[in-house]
């Protein structure tokens, strides 16, 4: 199985994402922002960082990268895509996911180990979790407050597209404690927490709960 890991100028967690993919037993395929080429990957990971310096607005410039011109139609056609942190912001800017991520309510960048509840285990990236499972993942962002208009929120809730919710205190003022959502088909998932920093005992957060994302997508791809 080949999982693409995208690098934009200013992407920071690409090395971590690639490692998490490898540890799960898949091949991590580097994808470069300036290429019109998805290199035939089976799924794509959009890692965190400050792509293009987050100038203008987080993810606002990245969505126009040549690679995104390939990725957007592929995602709409069903290619599994996971965006974490800046990757989530890019997915929203690219309109693959609804809503937007705005400045944290506390107005500070916040790095901490955060309780998360898996609200939907039917997406491409969450199949190996139990419905309602509580997991621990690090968050680290300054602009992670999820907002959307009332109709969008209602639709997300109704359709079960709120995939993750913060537990034990909302860190950023996200509406409905939303930590992550998916598109209608469930192949595109975006979340602010970082599963790639919670896959090893020795390093990162005091949790290996992030492994579930990678085992989920591999299982999905194998059985597809």
């Amino acid at each position: 199985m080949r999982v693409g890991v995208v690098t934009f100028p200013g992407t920071l967690d690409d090395q971590d994402a690639a490692r998490a993919v490898r540890l799960a037993g898949a091949e991590a395929v580097p994808l470069w922002h300036a290429d019109h080429d998805l290199r035939g990957v089976d799924a794509v990971f959009l890692p965190g960082g400050f792509s293009y310096g987050d100038y203008l607005r987080c993810g606002a410039i990245s969505r126009f990268a040549p690679l995104m011109e390939e990725l957007i139609p592929a995602a709409k056609a069903g290619l599994p895509v996971l965006g974490t942190c800046n990757g989530f912001q890019i997915l929203c800017e690219a309109h693959l996911l609804p809503g937007a991520l705005t400045r944290n309510a506390g107005l500070h960048y916040l790095c901490r180990d955060q309780g998360i509840r898996v609200e939907n285990n039917a997406t491409a990236w969450t199949g190996q979790f139990d419905q309602g499972q509580e997991i621990l993942l690090p968050i680290k962002h300054g602009e992670g407050r999820y907002v959307a208009d009332a109709a969008t929120l209602a639709e997300l809730e109704r359709a079960g597209r709120v995939v993750f919710r913060y537990t034990g205190g909302n860190p950023n003022g996200s509406l409905n404690d939303i930590a992550g959502i998916c598109n209608e088909a469930g192949n595109v998932v975006g979340l602010m927490p970082h599963p790639e920093h919670a896959v090893e005992e020795l390093t990162g957060a005091p949790s290996v709960d992030g492994r579930g994302f990678f085992t989920s997508i591999l299982k999905k791809l194998v059985t597809a």
């Binding site: 920071l12 971590d16 500070h108 960048y109 916040l110 790095c111 690090p138 990162g204 957060a205």
Partner: peptide
């Protein structure tokens, strides 16, 4: 320290 990323690069 919670304003600093301590995890990046893994």
């Amino acid at each position: 320290t919670s304003q600093y990323d301590r995890y990046v690069r893994g």
